[in-house]
Design a protein around this nucleic acid. Structure first.
Lengths: 337, 337
DNA sequence: ACCGATATGAAAATATCTTCCACCCGTGAG
DNA sequence: CTCACGGGTGGAAGATATTTTCATATCGGT
């Protein structure tokens, strides 16, 4: 089943009515003005060329038409909102004139000019994209906060992906996929990431636990041995509560993995494989915890997917099973799909 | 100009005015049926946000509407050329359905959607983004997994940011900033997000708790009253373990906030403010939990920052204090910087 | 299997766009 | 100076496109 997205794909990509006789709707090709050959005006200008076209054609326009063209050229966005009648009023002319102007500019009618106008407006708008990269400050309006945060996190993701050592990931995944059991250590913000990893691994039938309590973590680490895997997550690379259990696991002969922003930190000393997370800039209002978390989660997701791929035979059914098991915890009524 | 839109939308259901009703409060925003203003969706998406909006809203659409949305999202340029009837035919549905879909996406009608489509097409044309969005498959090499995951999550972030109703965020932040106490409910994957929020709020000196245990959650919810805030986090919008405590909090008069991917889900009925997370497509190897988590975290971060801004006087010192307090949990060694 | 509610498409009702046509205005010849 | 002519222009009929209504098909729960 997967998803039913496949059924879309409307081929028939460019369904331009280009050809004179191809128009399903109306044979509106007939020239209005009696003048001989309308010559099927040059190809209709794309949004970009519209402004230029207006200037070029202006001289050959009648006064009323010029007014329309003027309005259109100076405020595409605004005009795109108007109906024929609206634009006629705004320019102090009539609908007929607006349509004639549209024709002159190379469109079949006003409807199409309007569409082009919308396109032009959108382009102009996007061209002026400011790209809010500044830091978040105390008096930023919420809208800016949202935009900045999203951008920052996207940047963090890109950085992380770029900085990840694929070979290390590969090795870590290999160890985890065949592990008898997996322990994950993390406290504070990293604790949540640690739980996330454990939770996901559980869902595909792995034996995984997340330990936030440092004492219990060490207690558990002592039980590990070769064939087991221990994962430590710490942004700073020097959180003792996390390093300690990893060290123990390491000494016990387990395969150890560190996910840290400081590959030179102490935690790396006890790690067989080090996965480096990105360290984005931070500010007072944007504590490190935020971007490190994003980064860590990406790494954790990669590990998870990698493991799931390699244990697909058991992972897939386990996944469905856990969804099944939780189904009754949902209220019944959501419509379709 | 004059954003003529029917932005009205004044819901603010006088909840339990005299406390007689101990029963399911009338679903807010239930105006829909019958005559009157369809009003529904808040901000009409600009061309840019359209694609995001489609992805976000897709799950809460009916089958026919999904087909329309699919077509629109996959070939904006092509669809912009079509009339209602044309698009209806192409998607094998009716005009009515097309119009309904347009409404759901936040436009007054198809005409406006079409305009936006034209804009989007123009942008895409000029922007020419490659968009490498293949699904992750079982035999993808790790390097691809990393790249795809990072891209997907970036997309999710962009979608979420584009789809977030800033006014709702604003309102939620305002309530939280002045709250006497804040409860956060979430189970499963959302439970971690819930913890994340609570953890952060604690750091800036707010009284916040995350409850995963549904019994304890309800027990706590009963203690809430006006001036308190309850936040429910559920991707599906119908996780009873989360809805239940929120409902209780709602009945108690607390301000309630829902963070969900299904703004039409049951959870929204008991929420004063609904924050919509994006729902990226998922595949077997990329369970929904993954992108919903990313999306939820972004929302949660926004809330946090918003609250921190508004309580800066107390938040800033509280933040430093909590860092201080944890300093001794770090090993001393890291060199420079 | 029944019942109630929701989703859907056909067709009616509007809104919008296009075409047609008469009027107006400027121009040049008588 | 007047008149006839021709294109420019707007008003309104005619043609399409869009929106709304409503009966029917379908779905999901009891």
């Amino acid at each position: 089943m997967s998803s039913d997205l496949k059924e879309n794909f409307a081929f028939r990509p460019g369904r331009r009515p280009a050809g004179p006789g191809t128009q399903p709707p109306a044979p509106r090709a007939a020239a209005e003005a009696g003048a001989g050959a309308p010559a099927r005006n040059t190809n209709r200008p794309g949004p970009t060329a519209l402004a230029a076209k207006v200037r070029t054609m202006a001289p050959s326009m009648t006064r009323s038409m010029q007014r329309v063209a003027e309005a259109v050229a100076s405020d595409p966005a605004g005009c795109a909102q108007l109906t024929v009648t609206g634009l006629a009023e705004r320019t102090g002319t009539s609908e007929a004139t607006v349509v004639r102007t549209s024709r002159l500019l190379g469109y079949p009618g006003y409807r199409d000019l309007r569409l082009a106008l919308a396109g032009l407006a959108a382009q102009q708008e996007s061209g002026a994209a400011p790209a809010v990269t500044a830091d978040i400050v105390v008096d930023d309006p919420i809208a800016d906060v949202v935009a900045k945060l999203a951008l920052d996190e996207q940047q963090t993701l890109a950085d992380t992906a770029a900085g990840l050592d694929v070979a290390q990931v590969e090795a870590a995944v290999a160890a985890m996929a065949t592990a008898r059991r997996i322990d994950v250590y993390g406290v504070g913000a990293s604790g949540l990431v640690s739980q996330d990893l454990a939770q996901k691994l559980l869902r595909i039938g792995m034996v995984a636990h997340s330990h936030a309590d440092p004492h219990l973590a060490v207690t558990n680490a002592v039980q590990l041995r070769a064939g087991d895997v221990a994962v430590a997550i710490t942004h700073s690379g020097r959180t003792v509560d996390v390093i300690e259990p990893l060290r123990v696991a390491f000494d016990q002969g387990a395969t150890t993995i560190a996910i840290t922003g400081r590959p030179d930190g102490e935690v790396a000393q006890y790690a067989d494989h080090v996965l480096t997370t990105s360290t984005a800039r931070e500010s007072e209002l944007r504590p490190a915890a935020m971007s490190s978390r994003t980064s860590q989660l990406l790494v954790v997701d990669c590990l998870f997917i990698g493991v799931a791929q390699r244990t697909y035979e058991t992972a897939a059914p386990a996944l469905s099973a856990s969804y099944e098991a939780l189904a009754h915890r949902h209220s019944p009524r959501p419509r379709t799909r």
